[in-house]
């Protein structure tokens, strides 16, 4: 997945800072995510990974700094607008619509292609035109047999797969994944890693991860955060050889070799 196309960063932050009543969660972060790469954002617990993630997707407003996506300043935008530009996020807790069926979950994302759906007087049967594409996406993540099931009844790992299928339905240019393997069994972790690799083709992925084993085989570039600051950046070999990283992250975290 090494990037042949390095025509400038797709996502770029400058001096990105978030303070919560004096507590600095993210401090002066300059992040550059190259187009077409899988970029990992790692760090020990409380390093500010999720805060950083929420800033990038506009779910939190930054205290200072700017964010540019695809040549556009998105610092002042709302989350729904950012999503419309093709920058789509996932959530740490599996984010499905539990009372909709698995098929409807994906379809509600495909439905976005209609523009706004304010037509309350029309029958939902007109959404059936999206069913074929929805089934393709479910097929992609191995959920074909689950289409009619209520999403809330899926096992955890499958919910993650459904979430990815829903995200892909938007055909995003860039995917932001928040700890996609959190709380998963070994078997599920491997399945999700394979899935991320597959969907990353032709896209850019930024992945927040706690689990080093996951980023090692997956990411082209890794940024290490500690206490809200960028500690190191580079490929896995360079980052893991960095003594500061070892002290701050590897040294203190017993779960390095695959803690989950």
């Amino acid at each position: 997945m090494a990037s042949a196309a390095s025509d400038g960063p797709i996502l770029e932050t400058e001096g990105l800072t978030k303070e919560f009543r004096g507590f600095v969660a993210v401090a002066d972060v300059a992040l550059k995510v190259r187009r077409g790469t899988i970029h990992g954002l790692i760090g020990p617990n409380g390093a500010g990974k999720t805060t950083c993630f929420n800033l990038l997707t506009k779910f939190l407003p930054p205290t200072r700094g700017s964010i540019r996506y695809d040549g556009r300043d998105i610092t002042g935008m709302k989350p729904a607008e950012v999503a419309r530009l093709g920058l789509v996020r996932s959530f740490q807790i599996s984010a499905v619509f539990p009372h909709l069926t698995v098929l409807e979950n994906v379809r509600v994302a495909l439905q976005r292609a209609r523009g706004a759906s304010f037509d309350f007087w029309r029958s939902e049967s007109l959404l059936k035109s999206f069913d074929a594409r929805a089934m393709e996406l479910l097929d992609d993540v191995g959920l074909t047999g689950y289409a009619k099931l209520t999403a809330g009844e899926l096992p955890y790992g499958r919910k993650r797969a459904l979430e990815i299928a829903t995200t892909l339905a938007l055909e995003p240019q860039m995917l932001l994944l928040d700890e996609p393997t959190a709380g998963m069994t070994h078997e599920d972790v491997d399945r999700v890693i394979a899935l991320v690799k597959r969907v990353a083709a032709g896209r850019t992925v930024l992945l927040v991860e706690h689990n080093l084993k996951v980023v090692a085989g997956l990411c082209d570039t890794i940024t290490v955060l500690t206490r809200g600051r960028v500690l190191a950046e580079g490929d896995y070999a360079a980052v893991s050889a960095n003594p500061e990283v070892q002290a701050a992250y590897l040294g203190t975290d017993p779960g390095v070799s695959g803690g989950h």
Binding site: T57, F59, K78, P79, A80, E81, A83, R84, V88, R89, S90, F91, A95, V96, F97, P98, H99, L100, E104, R107, V108, A109, Q111, R112, R114, A116, S117, F118, D119, F120, W121, R122, S123, E124, L126, L127, T166, L170
Partner: peptide, 30 residues
């Protein structure tokens, strides 16, 4: 009909998980 319209689908999605509906690009307030 409202519940079972394209609008109703989005309504139910918002009920189930509002941040997720936002992240799919829906302006949930509207």
């Amino acid at each position: 009909r409202i519940v079972h319209s394209p609008f109703g689908q989005v309504m139910k999605a918002i009920r189930d998980n509002e941040p997720r509906a936002t992240s799919l690009g829906y302006r949930v307030e509207q």
